[in-house]
Amino acid sequence: MDFDPTPQQQDLRDAVAKLGKRFGHEYFVRKAKAGEHSDELWQEAAKLGYLGVSVPEQYDGGGGGITELAIVCEELAAAGCPLLLLVVSPAIAATIVARHGTEAQRQSLLPGFAGGTLKVCFAITEPDAGSNFHRLTTVAKPFDGGYSLTGRKVYISGVDESDKIMVVARLEDERTGKLKPAIFVVPANAPGLTATKIDMEIVSPENQFQLYLDDVRVPAEALIGEDPEAGLAALFSGLNPERITVAAMACGTARYALERASTYTATRAVWGRPIGSHQGVAHPLAHAHIQVELARLMVAKAATLYDAGRDLEAGVAANMAKYAAAEAAALAVDTAIQSLGGNGMTTEYGVSTLLGAVRAGRIAPVSREMILNFVSQHLLGQEKSY
């Protein structure tokens, strides 16, 4: 058991942290409130090779794994400028293509992921099914030379920034006649595809959308992989990195909030001494810090298991990491705001602007309740509750 990063991983962490500090939380908030995207940060991260750290080297990537991508996600968030599309495009979409795409799909798509010139969003969630792939109503029907997709998706991140959309639909199994998950790469401007922005109370440069697919026709090569039977495995190969990188981002956000708060409480003097000298202020911050460090350990474990190809164990750890990190981030931001008093609610001090994002982190991409259901059923042997 080795808790030390490799020299390359430490260099990556230091370099990404340096980049994040060049932009910072003020840049992030300014972009969000202006209705703009953090394009400059994305382009700079691409130029420095950070977006493609987990893409195989033969496709112009860094040849690392989800461990390295999680480092990028965490350190940008720790600087106050997280990139949500890191989770969506490199973590989910690029991993699915790298693991399950055809060689033609890898050659066509992966260099764009690595260079940051291609953004692909991921559409699984539906109004009535959530992300329960057994209940998805978006259906793909074969026609001569391709597939027709019809259905509806909701809470899809970054549609307005993306060149393509990775759509999870249900395709009829030729052998059994049953509908099974399949993944298609659809141009964002495909005829029959309509996107409607959802107004959210979250400070973020990335937007959420509803998608309507009305007989959206794609060629046969839009289906990820050569085997329609492999759709479920491909889906999970993307969902576990999603949970891991979301957790890493939450840990980074928590670190940012606690750094802001601890700096403030160490220098804010009332009655002749810093407010951080009082246990009523210091202990909640210390407690939150401990929870964040515990969550970071689980993120590292989940990423290590995933990169080792131990998918079943990685899935369990990824869910736990996401749960722990979301709870720790919500605690850290709330504690930071309380520590700053009235200043905690101002834009200037840069912590209240995190409230919406960390609260959403307890819901998406999988809710804390569903993770608890998973743990109680599969790890503690309890009867299924739903």
Score class of each variant (00 low, 15 high):
1 M>S: 13
2 D>V: 11
2 D>R: 15
6 T>W: 02
6 T>N: 05
10 Q>D: 13
13 R>I: 05
17 A>M: 02
29 V>S: 12
39 D>C: 00
44 E>H: 03
49 G>P: 12
52 G>H: 12
54 S>C: 14
63 G>L: 14
64 G>H: 14
66 I>V: 15
69 L>N: 08
77 A>E: 05
80 G>K: 05
80 G>V: 01
83 L>H: 00
91 A>D: 15
97 V>P: 09
99 R>Y: 12
102 T>G: 06
102 T>F: 05
107 Q>I: 05
112 G>Y: 11
112 G>Q: 13
125 T>A: 14
126 E>Q: 15
129 A>F: 04
135 R>A: 14
138 T>D: 03
138 T>G: 10
151 G>P: 05
157 S>L: 01
157 S>G: 01
163 D>Q: 12
164 K>N: 02
166 M>V: 09
167 V>I: 14
169 A>G: 06
170 R>T: 04
171 L>V: 08
171 L>R: 13
175 R>M: 11
178 K>F: 06
179 L>E: 01
190 A>N: 09
190 A>E: 13
193 L>M: 12
195 A>W: 06
196 T>H: 14
196 T>F: 08
197 K>H: 12
198 I>A: 07
200 M>G: 00
201 E>V: 12
205 P>L: 14
207 N>R: 13
208 Q>D: 03
209 F>D: 05
211 L>D: 09
213 L>E: 05
226 E>F: 00
235 L>V: 09
237 S>K: 11
238 G>C: 12
240 N>L: 07
241 P>S: 04
241 P>Q: 08
242 E>H: 04
242 E>A: 10
244 I>D: 02
246 V>W: 07
249 M>T: 07
251 C>L: 06
255 R>S: 02
257 A>Y: 01
259 E>S: 08
262 S>N: 15
263 T>V: 03
269 A>I: 15
274 P>K: 15
278 H>L: 12
278 H>M: 12
281 V>N: 02
284 P>H: 07
284 P>G: 07
287 H>T: 13
288 A>Y: 03
291 Q>P: 00
295 A>Q: 06
298 M>G: 03
305 L>W: 00
310 R>F: 04
311 D>K: 15
317 A>Q: 08
318 A>M: 09
321 A>F: 03
321 A>I: 01
322 K>D: 01
325 A>Q: 10
329 A>W: 02
330 A>F: 00
336 A>I: 10
336 A>Q: 06
339 S>P: 03
342 G>T: 08
342 G>I: 06
343 N>S: 08
347 T>K: 10
360 A>W: 10
367 S>F: 05
367 S>P: 02
369 E>W: 09
372 L>Y: 05
377 Q>L: 09
385 S>A: 09
386 Y>V: 13
